[in-house]
Computed example of a mutant assay.
Amino acid sequence: MILNKARPSSYPRLVADIGGTNARFGWIAGPGAGATQVRKLAVPDFPGPADAARAYLSELSVALGQAYQPPRQAAMAVATAVGDDRVAFTNSHWGFSRAALQAALGLDGLQVLNDFEALALALPHLRPEQLRAHGALPQARGTLAVIGPGTGLGVAGVVQTRHGWLALPGEGGHSTLAPGDDFESEVLRAVRRDFSHVSAERLLSGIGLPVLHRAVAGVLGQQIAEPWAAEQIMDRGLAGADEAASRSLDTFCTLLGSFAGNVALVLGARGGVYIGGGIVPRMEQRFFASAFRERFEAKGRLRGYLEAIPTALITDTLVALTGAAAAIEQQVG
């Protein structure tokens, strides 16, 4: 749903990328401009997005002085499914009415879109310096896919049409995760003792990494009395200071590779599959040394199909703001 009413100018524009942990805000000053004045605010510090946006705009008005004008249009990329007027976040306490938020911020138009819909809209605009690829860089043509392990696990696609790029939002992160070898079968069997449905997000996310680590430790014969925090698993695993943590990161990469290959097949994403989110950039070297790409391609008779699809890591954490800006541009020009 898009709330919009005509007005002579649609600038300046407010863009936001709101996850379960952080909310990033940016400013589009005029035609052709990128997002500037980017600020990151902690979601737990505010009751809702209106309060966070007001705090950002208040700080911005001081920084810009007489050059500041209230935003006319806004787009907010949110880490949850988007349906009718009411938006409730999956992995945070925030919830809001889109109509009420537009009124509270005095906007002429407000778009609210899934954060991975915004990330998908940004894919055709990415520059080589914002990516690190397994070999050749993806090409902005045909169909592209993006998968993002962050607080949760986002999945989306974007299709090239004669009218421009069309985003394909969805909730693919909640599809059932499949093992790729005997070790992963044991890991998933251990997880199913606690969860009747093991989705990709259940293991391939910030909230899932402790679940994965505990299961891996159990398969290795270690007992974890209390779940480790994702940060601890990441730090100790990357340092090689704990066998279960290290094996968990390797398993994370192989499971992600298998899942990414599935997404590529489902969407026909021959233009490329991009990995976003905040987790993989933290272990960039480990990721590129892992069996991710081998598992991405390991689809039996369709190996050749997958071998031709490029994969790349998005190293710029602010690209969803580009997608939010593209969403406004598609709507109001």
Rank of each mutant, 00 (worst) to 15 (best):
3 L>R: 15
8 P>M: 14
12 P>D: 05
14 L>M: 07
17 D>P: 07
21 T>Y: 11
23 A>N: 11
23 A>P: 08
25 F>I: 04
29 A>W: 06
32 G>E: 13
32 G>M: 12
33 A>P: 00
33 A>H: 13
43 V>S: 00
46 F>Q: 08
46 F>V: 11
49 P>C: 12
51 D>G: 06
56 Y>T: 05
57 L>R: 09
62 V>F: 12
62 V>L: 12
62 V>K: 10
63 A>W: 09
64 L>F: 02
74 A>P: 04
74 A>M: 08
75 A>G: 06
76 M>K: 10
79 A>G: 05
80 T>R: 11
81 A>N: 08
82 V>N: 06
83 G>C: 09
87 V>Q: 11
90 T>G: 06
90 T>R: 09
92 S>F: 07
93 H>T: 11
93 H>R: 15
96 F>R: 04
97 S>K: 07
97 S>D: 07
97 S>H: 06
98 R>H: 11
98 R>V: 14
105 L>K: 08
107 L>T: 02
108 D>E: 12
109 G>I: 10
115 D>K: 08
118 A>D: 01
118 A>K: 04
120 A>G: 09
120 A>F: 00
123 L>P: 03
123 L>C: 03
126 L>T: 12
127 R>V: 14
128 P>S: 09
135 G>K: 06
135 G>E: 06
135 G>I: 06
139 Q>F: 07
147 I>P: 00
148 G>V: 08
149 P>N: 15
151 T>A: 12
157 G>F: 01
160 Q>W: 02
160 Q>S: 13
161 T>N: 11
162 R>D: 14
167 A>E: 05
168 L>I: 14
168 L>K: 09
169 P>N: 13
169 P>F: 06
171 E>G: 11
173 G>R: 08
182 D>F: 11
182 D>A: 12
183 F>Q: 06
183 F>G: 05
184 E>I: 01
188 L>D: 01
188 L>I: 13
188 L>T: 03
194 D>S: 14
195 F>Q: 11
197 H>I: 10
200 A>H: 15
205 S>M: 08
205 S>A: 09
206 G>M: 04
206 G>L: 05
207 I>M: 08
208 G>P: 02
216 V>T: 10
217 A>M: 11
219 V>F: 06
220 L>P: 03
222 Q>H: 07
226 E>N: 07
227 P>N: 10
227 P>V: 04
228 W>Y: 14
229 A>T: 07
231 E>F: 12
234 M>I: 05
240 G>A: 02
243 E>M: 05
247 R>D: 07
248 S>M: 13
249 L>Y: 01
249 L>R: 03
253 C>T: 01
253 C>A: 15
253 C>W: 00
265 L>Q: 15
270 R>H: 07
270 R>D: 04
272 G>P: 00
272 G>Y: 01
282 R>C: 08
282 R>A: 05
287 F>C: 00
292 F>D: 02
293 R>S: 02
294 E>F: 02
294 E>D: 13
295 R>H: 12
298 A>F: 04
299 K>S: 00
300 G>A: 05
301 R>H: 15
302 L>Y: 12
303 R>K: 14
305 Y>T: 14
313 L>H: 05
315 T>D: 09
323 G>P: 03
324 A>I: 03
326 A>S: 12
329 E>F: 06
331 Q>F: 11
